[in-house]
Amino acid sequence: MKNILLLIHDDGGQEGRLQVALDLCRAIDGHLTCLDVTYVPPVLGDGYGAAYVLGDVVTQEAAREVDNKGKVVARLADEGISWDWIDAAGDIAPTLQRAAELTDVIVVNREVGDFAYPDMHGAAAELIVRSGKPVLAVPADCRGLDHAAALIAWDGSRCAAAALRAAVPLLKRTDHVTIVEVQDGSITTTPAEDAAEYLARYGVPADIRRITASPAGPALLKEASSGGFGYVVMGGYGHLRLVEALFGGVTRTMLGESPIPVFLAH
């Protein structure tokens, strides 16, 4: 993990994801690519009136992003990291996905927060499933990546294993790692002991803790909210997204409510 793709957009969550991306970049000695997206909203209605309103919105958005770029670039010049900048326009998730071919992790927010559009929760979900890259989903009020302790949410799935493998470079720089397996009656294909053994080969010792709870989402959210961890590593949408949308699910719960950054892979 060396190449970090960061969404730059003038919204309420930008400071949080910028700080987390900078901390991640320093932790793994990585390179930060800033993708500055001028958001183009969908056209509501038809005819010249709708086109005029859309053009006015895009013009205002572009002006705001130019001002935002100047401020962020000035900050990056003093951060002492390797970085580059890409300007783009379009919808958030597809634009990030197109730019992510040579990226190791994408940093976005769980949701934008004070903007009705774009929907960052939806963008994060789309990127987890469609980009083929791990996503670091950051709470809007987060002010950095604390890698003193990590929680690995383990269910034995292929998605959990993919997240674990992708997170190894960061886990190697984390002081304490705990694998939490919530026993909710579901069948796990790979036990937590195998995950711990895998990490041990990379020099990452990990404790194992099992919790009996059903459903698993609230139990993991309680762990993430305990103050004992700086970030979570977990598989994203291990079950069909339609099923999770209808009945909830761990991914949906953590994307919606986790107070700490969540590293997800599908």
Rank of each mutant, 00 (worst) to 15 (best):
V66C: 12
D194A: 02
Q97C: 08
V57M: 13
G203I: 04
G256P: 00
D175K: 13
P139W: 04
G70H: 12
K222D: 05
D78M: 09
L102H: 14
L171A: 11
D146N: 15
E111L: 02
A27S: 08
V43G: 06
N109W: 01
T103P: 04
A100P: 07
E181A: 10
T189W: 15
S258H: 00
L199D: 04
L127R: 08
V37G: 01
S131R: 13
Y48H: 11
G230C: 06
G249N: 08
A93R: 13
L5D: 02
N109R: 01
P215N: 04
R252S: 04
S82L: 02
A192V: 02
A153E: 04
G47E: 09
I81D: 06
M234C: 02
G203E: 03
A148R: 15
R75V: 08
G235L: 08
A161S: 14
P205S: 06
A148M: 08
A166E: 13
D67H: 14
A74F: 10
H266L: 00
V135T: 06
A140K: 06
R130S: 00
V112F: 09
A123V: 01
E61G: 10
S226I: 04
T38K: 12
S258E: 00
M254H: 07
V232F: 10
K69A: 14
V168N: 03
L136D: 03
S226F: 11
V168W: 13
G90V: 05
L242D: 11
D91W: 12
T59E: 15
A150D: 10
G185S: 11
D91N: 15
L136Q: 05
G30L: 04
I211R: 05
D36L: 06
L170F: 14
A88Y: 09
G132W: 13
P94T: 01
S225A: 10
D29A: 05
R173K: 15
L22Y: 13
G12P: 10
P134A: 05
A206V: 04
R210H: 02
P42L: 03
E257A: 07
A200R: 06
L96F: 10
V58L: 15
A216M: 01
L18W: 11
